[in-house]
Design a protein around this nucleic acid. Sequence first.
RNA 1: GCCCCGAUAGUAUAGUCCGGCCUAGAAUGCUGGCCUGUCGAGCCAGCGACCCGGGUUCAAAUCCCGGUCGGGGCGCCA
Length: 439
Amino acid sequence: MSLRTHYTSEIKPEDNGKEVIIAGWIHRIRDLGGVRFLIIRDMKDTIQVTIKKGEVPQDLLEITEKLREECVVTVKGIVKANRIAPKGREIIPKEIKVLDKPVENLPISISSKTEIGLDTRLNYRVLDLRRPEVLAIFKIQSKLVEGMEEYLIEQKFYKVFTPCIIGAASEGGSEVFPVIYFNRSAFLRQDPQLHRQLVVISGLDRIYDLGPSWRAELSHTPRHLCEHRGCAVEMGFIKDEYDIMRVQENLIVRGIMKVKKECGEELELLNKKLEVPSTPFPELRFPDVYDILEAYGKKIPFGEDYDRESELILAKYVKEKYKSDFFFVNRFPFKVKPFYVMKVDEDPQWARSVDLIYKGLELSSGGQREHRYEKIIEQIKEKGISLLSLQWFTDFFKYGAPPHGGFNIGIERLTMQLLDLSNIREATLFPRTPERLLP
RNA sequence: GCCCCGAUAGUAUAGUCCGGCCUAGAAUGCUGGCCUGUCGAGCCAGCGACCCGGGUUCAAAUCCCGGUCGGGGCGCCA
């Protein structure tokens, strides 16, 4: 049994005369002397409560005299359709209960339009989230992921949970966070990658995992977090990496469609118009990438990885040529990718390794994995990694593994790019960065 | 990890280059008052700040050094 009968968004002018109870925070008070307007905010929207001297019980005038912004209240009253009220309706109160009130002034204003720096906002994140335009980001993020999950479920993927604490650093490359595991050392995963592969070769060959990953990198950029979440998909019995690219682009499309369909008000609040991207997404391939970059005056040595600037150049190229914000980059040089990627058998300098770029930012990486035991061992040796350290993983490939592949889409990055947020921390409820561990 | 930039009321800022005219300014917020249709309400009055440590100087918000924190770029990557 809830304290409220309606969320504010559910009250329409057609409800004229109906008795309702709303519950929420005092968003704003406009006191004109003889008439006092309380704007009440809940999770969904706001509504105006109008208190006119002489038209409401005397005790309401006294109660509302003492109210401040961000008091938590319930209001029981009659809905009145009124053209001059916001959204054509207001509540004439019969009873107002104060459930709680702030014990001190708020450090940041919820209702005022004064701009607040991101760092300050994150220091007071809980209050920051009370601002409807901030909350809108996370409502959208929720629907985005929901749309993606709907697609995966339709496509017969199972949702699985893989471990966050791992006994051995998985990929090399980026730094891992050590954790104390009783009397042993362990790590937080950088990626659910290897365990996902193990699930697929176990026989559960269409899975996804929504969960966190950690990177112990001192990254000071608007697009890196020490803790981020991914939608990680892995599937078996694929023909080649193109099978996973098709899943990936449909996944993105379905996420965006869901947001477009269900988050009209939130998008409006953020002043965003979404276009559902058309599929298939354009694909660029190594080594053609080198030529494209060179045409834009960027020389990358043949066989080497491209850099951040190149990423932006390629995005510009794709936007001009294909009018797309999304594109895949395929066939990366094997030397810049981890041991588990599958080489192109006929031309083993290149790998069936695929990044997805969205508005110039890497959203995911993935591709086809090497499933043949001897090849995996060969590739581990080629990378100079100790076979022993990966034996826990490689041994399972001795017993029959199907061709498989997958990818991991960064949820915060997708949200950030979708909404053109200037910092990934905006797309994270409680971001973890090298300096920030609280709240 | 490397490079560049910054830190002034609760918030967001002006002032810093060229030290003194700063008793630090306007906004917003908060407190009090006026106001019967506001919708970033309006009007009047008040409250409130130079990141920390050291140095230079007759004099430091302002110049120098160190620290902390923040912003950005690179690397790493989701």
